[in-house]
Design a binder for these strands. Structure first.
Lengths: 110, 110
DNA sequence: AGGCATGGTGAAAAAATTATCCCCCACCCT
DNA sequence: AGGGTGGGGGATAATTTTTTCACCATGCCT
């Protein structure tokens, strides 16, 4: 089922919040607490789970600073970096077609 | 939440089977029965639901031929066509990174 | 009539995803 | 000791998505 590259990519980028999380990290919001503040409509727990998943995929890695209180920063790995242009393409397409899609998305809500 | 184009795109392309379905249609497998045969691991019902969703988004449209038995073909709309290059990018990235992703996907199965 | 093919749906169950709640740890400070 | 910060996790519930199962309709054919 993960035979087509499309499925692999969708698995990584899909899910309700992963794309947003990656977009945040990209914009420099890389600390858990900062992500929680930025994405207030998402429970911290969920953000952590997604971060873990992305980390497992090797898209981001966790930089831990031995400070006190401890500081953590998530950054893109090389593979993660290679995903950025792909996200750009998605982002652009989404922006160009938002109205069109949303018009027919009445049922399949938000 | 659908403010970033990324979310819009993910909504369209995401889900467990939509990407695969669109890939099939693209390859010329556009009739429901053919899709069912091609994607045997997916229940016909689900394929229909996804087709409906894509149709609602205006990505594909349904061509009905008044033959007997009735024949139906799903085809891309103009907006759907504009999504193809985007899928290409996803497909390519997925193919290039399949091994890497799958290695860490043990938990987050299939 | 019964069997084939086509395309399709409603209801309910199962599975996966997301959310909530309350807890933990270490360490600083007052 | 109590309160603050920063980073986590388990258990459970709610929600969404996917699946199964049984069923409908048309019109062919034997």
């Amino acid at each position: 089922m993960l035979d087509c590259g499309l499925s692999v990519a969708v698995k990584v980028v899909g899910g309700k919040w992963k794309a947003w999380i990656m977009d945040c990290i990209r914009r420099g919001i890389q600390r858990p607490s900062a992500l929680h503040r930025e994405m207030q409509e998402v429970s911290p727990r969920i953000i952590n789970l997604h971060l873990k998943e992305l980390e497992d995929y090797g898209i981001i890695y966790k930089q831990v600073y031995a400070e006190v209180p401890v500081r953590v920063e998530y950054r893109f790995t090389a593979v993660g970096e290679s995903l950025l242009p792909v996200m750009d393409v998605l982002e652009q397409w989404g922006n160009e077609n938002r109205e069109h899609i949303l018009a027919g998305a009445r049922s399949h809500l938000v």
